[in-house]
Design a protein around this nucleic acid. Structure first.
Length: 570
RNA sequence: UCCGGUGUCGUCCAAUGGCAGGACAGCGGACUUUGAAUCCGCGAAUCAUGGUUCGAAUCCAUGCGCCGGAGCCA
């Protein structure tokens, strides 16, 4: 809530080269007052953080003017790999991210007839022809980076013959693979995309929206720009790998004499360290069960991040902050984590929970006494109020918060070390109880009866403050500790080998503050001194089993210090 | 090797011929009933070479690096 942040958000207009261009066009009224963008997913996989960047960009651009509009268009031109399940998931994820496309939901398949009519037009103009050769022959005669292509023997078929053949393709009278429709451009072009690109291929495949109406389906290049044109899109924003397609994009629009054609603008798609963002790889992780599904909390999918406990705000802030450019860089995942912690810190109520319990008994605690500690729900934000947490003479503390031999600068539990149990009492360990194996199983302490609430009556300073949960009142929980899915900063090559073997640790018998047991699924909290958690959307039930997912740890400067000093402990 | 894109602190993004700036990360300190947050401070970059210019990250030339392109995928 600092002024600095407020200022940043007020300035919040996207400052990037695409927005600059849109603003310039707006100022010059270069687009007849129109401002239309679109987000065009293919429904063949779940949306991921890279898509989120694109969504933020496209909806953000549309928000640059009151008349701005961002369409959701499903690019469903390849029915073999697409399905309604993905359509649903995509809609859900965009909505969750906080964007609204209103009535502007479209499908490339809605335009199949228009596309086909246009194709016949191009044939009639002598700008397209049916090539009746095999895939192999077409590939071989396309040439390569060094050799020009060779004209197809069918390149100069008559308009009548082409039309007849195209209609036969459409009618399903020709077998798959026997013919394609090609744009007649230039087999000698240095730009391979312009060497008579394919417009239609025969696929006798059921489409999830058009059923069996079509035996031919348009290729991306033939469908995309024309779909943009039909929708009146002004800026067709796509990622860098499509730069090579722009001449073709423009060629089709020109050949069809589309007035005020859409304009393709490319930007660098997101790459994130310790993450893979390729649909193929994500699909493989799901299908081979390296993760539990598309919404596994370790996945960089929007669904996974949601289940992990991310907030839409943090994802949007991340997208704003990394900016948009034509550089093909790799954003350190630390940027994302920072945005996450930043928002969670402002919004997640604090509760206490002990992941690996160690019993602590206060030997001089009055028999039967229960003290109600009053703690801030959101320190620094009084409007969030306080809560009462019961404290008895027997509590659980974190095993990591006790060290029998305290290193330098260790302010937590150790024999003879006075420590504050947050909001409750000052205690000192007198006796360490071990089992036969030598494991510490209990700490016997005394407390300063004048320290109720956690402050010493004489004002002496106690540096260490630790969290606790009353044994008598604790709620048992399962806690899933998620970590990065990949151990390598760049997992792109052998990504399966790069999987982090410790990306999930499931803890049972964790002890939580009683209030957590009543929480609804999908509730975010901070477990003080540990990290941010969310009650699992599938497995947590209020009053039933408590299941928490760790969203992200708190920053841990002790761990850093300890590492530097070469000592153990948390 | 051909075509296209792109080179600015460790990372991401600005600077649109006029003081190279911000964020993240790092480091140091203050504060702290979360070793969190917050606050203060520090270090850190124009791919190279030549040219134009009073002045170049920016314009020109040459070279180099990285990314993409030869699917009936999107």
């Amino acid at each position: 809530m600092s002024d600095a942040k407020t200022t940043r958000e007020d300035e919040g207009q996207p400052g990037n080269f695409v927005a600059d261009r849109v603003r310039a066009d707006l100022a010059a009224d270069a687009k007849q007052g129109r401002l239309v963008t679109r987000f065009p997913p293919e429904p063949n996989g779940y949306l991921h953080i890279g898509h989120a960047k694109s969504i933020c960009l496209n909806f953000g651009l549309a928000a640059l003017a009151p008349q701005g509009q961002c369409n959701l268009r499903f690019d469903d031109t390849n029915p073999e790999v697409e399905s309604p399940e993905y359509v649903e998931a995509i809609r859900r994820d965009i909505r969750w991210l906080g964007f609204d496309w209103g009535d502007n939901e479209f499908y490339a398949s809605d335009y199949f007839q228009q596309l086909y009519d246009w194709a016949e037009q191009l044939v009639e103009k002598g700008l397209a022809y049916v090539d009746s050769r095999s895939l192999e022959e077409i590939r071989e005669t396309r040439g390569d980076f060094h050799r020009p292509g060779v004209d197809s023997p069918h390149r100069d078929r008559s308009v009548a013959e082409n039309l007849d053949l195209l209609r036969k393709m459409k009618a399903g009278e020709l077998p798959e693979g026997s013919a394609v429709l090609r744009a007649k451009i230039d087999m000698q072009s240095k730009d391979l995309k312009l060497r008579d690109p394919l417009m239609y291929r025969i696929k006798k495949v059921h489409h999830h929206r058009t059923g069996d109406a079509w035996n031919i389906y348009p290729m991306y290049d033939w469908a995309h720009g024309q779909s943009d044109a039909i929708e009146g899109v002004t800026y067709s924003v796509c990622s860098l790998e499509f730069v090579n397609h722009r001449p073709l994009y423009n060629w089709f629009l020109k050949a069809l004499e589309i007035p005020n054609p859409p304009e393709q603008i490319e930007f660098g798609r997101l790459n994130l360290s310790y993450t893979v963002l390729s649909k193929r790889k994500l699909l493989q992780l799901v299908e081979e069960k390296h993760v539990a599904g598309w919404d596994d909390p370790r996945m960089p999918t929007v669904a996974g991040m949601r289940r992990r406990g991310f907030t839409p705000e943090s994802i949007r802030a991340f997208a704003d902050r990394i900016g948009v450019s034509k550089n093909d860089g790799v954003v350190d995942v630390g940027h994302l984590e920072y945005a996450l912690r930043e928002h969670l810190n402002e919004t997640s109520p604090r509760v206490m929970g002990v992941l690996r319990p160690l019993e602590l008994v206060i030997t001089n605690w009055p028999e039967g006494k229960v003290f109600e500690a009053e703690l801030d729900n959101l320190p620094g934000n009084e409007s969030a109020g306080t809560r009462k947490v019961p404290f008895g003479g027997r509590v659980f503390v974190e095993q990591d918060d006790f060290l029998e031999e305290a290193p330098k600068k260790w302010w937590r539990l150790a024999p003879g070390n006075e420590v504050r149990l947050r909001g409750a009492a000052l205690v000192t360990v007198n006796e360490v109880v071990k089992d036969d194996a030598g494991q510490v199983v209990q700490l016997k302490c005394t407390w300063d009866p004048a320290s109720e609430g956690g402050n010493a009556a004489d004002g002496r300073k106690v540096r260490g403050t630790i969290h606790w949960v009353s044994a008598e009142h604790a709620v048992d929980a399962e806690v899933r500790l998620y970590d990065r899915l990949f151990a390598d900063e760049d997992p792109s090559k052998d990504f399966l080998d790069a999987l982090n073997p410790d990306s999930l640790e499931v803890l049972t018998g964790c002890k939580l503050e009683p209030s957590v047991g009543a929480m609804e699924p999908g509730t975010r909290v901070q477990l003080e001194r540990i990290g941010y958690f969310v009650t699992d959307s599938e497995d947590h039930q209020p009053g039933g089993p408590a299941v928490l997912n760790r969203t992200i740890t708190l920053k841990d400067s002790w761990a850093k210090l300890a590492k530097k000093m070469g000592v153990g402990g948390k």
